[in-house]
């Protein structure tokens, strides 16, 4: 196991956003977390990446307990995170956005090393042509790509992706799929949250389904989509994809 969460819980006021959640991620695996809006998926990523601390439970990354570590330490240990609400550094160029991840991520790099890494990731993510553009001038699809590229630039062992396909045209989503697959080929494990079911079907080795903060099913795409609890949670509405 590369990453494991045990008995993970988080409350906001009286609301249990995540309740006693257990899951793990194997090396080189692509795991999807799906579930209806408000199921607690993004909260799970925030707990994993250290945006806020868990109330209970444990998170272990490759044998190291990271439950109480601040976000920057988790990044140094190999957790890369792309946000759902894209947060590019608006006045920096696309290239410099990636530089931040390359310089300070899981590997501390010199300027020269980081520049090299940045060019590699720009090419991998198809952003080379837009490298000199200020991030604020990008389209949503471009911002999503930068968000993911920046996380990849940190050289993570686990890449956490929060709805990086949402709002993209089918062709743009396909390009992102190809990038995620290419990253996995380099030995990176991926944990992603997604509403677009076609993406989940095509990309995930395994799926965890959440509802009201709890895990209600786990298994292959075929297994979980046939699960009665899952069908109930979704009321069949999102089965055909599209979110």
């Amino acid at each position: 196991m590369l990453l494991a969460a045990t008995d993970l819980s988080k409350r906001f006021g009286g609301v249990a956003a995540v309740r006693r959640l257990d899951f793990h991620l194997d090396p080189g695996e692509i795991l999807a977390i799906i579930g209806p809006n408000g199921a607690g998926k993004t909260t799970v990523l925030n707990l994993l990446s250290g945006v806020f601390p868990a109330d209970e439970g444990r998170i272990v990354l490759d044998g190291t307990d990271i439950t109480r570590l601040p976000a920057e330490d988790r990044c140094h240990l190999g957790l890369g995170r792309a946000f759902q609400v894209v947060q590019p550094f608006p006045e920096m160029t696309v290239r410099d956005n990636l530089m931040v991840g390359a310089l300070f991520g899981a590997r501390q790099r010199s300027l020269a090393e980081a520049r090299k890494r940045t060019e590699e990731v720009l090419a991998l993510t198809g952003l080379s042509g837009r490298a000199a553009m200020p991030a604020r001038d990008l389209t949503l699809a471009g911002e999503k790509r930068v968000e993911m590229a920046r996380a990849i630039a940190t050289s993570p062992r686990v890449l956490l992706l929060d709805e990086v396909m949402a709002g993209l045209l089918p062709q743009e989503a396909d390009e992102m799929l190809a990038v995620v697959r290419a990253v996995r080929e380099t030995g990176v494990a991926v944990l992603f949250i997604e509403h677009v079911m076609r993406v989940v079907r095509d990309l995930a080795d395994r799926v965890v389904v959440m509802d009201f903060g709890e895990k209600i099913a786990e298994g292959s795409y075929r297994d979980v989509t046939g699960h009665p609890k899952v069908i109930e949670a979704y009321l069949g509405t999102e089965e055909t994809g599209g979110a």
Binding site: A71, E72, H76, R81, F83, F89, P90, V100, F104, A151
Partner: peptide
């Protein structure tokens, strides 16, 4: 890069290891 990243998004900078 660290200074500019912090100025333009402190939380994001932290998640990127700054």
């Amino acid at each position: 890069y660290a200074f500019t990243a912090i100025r333009q998004g402190e939380l994001t900078a932290r998640v990127l290891g700054v």
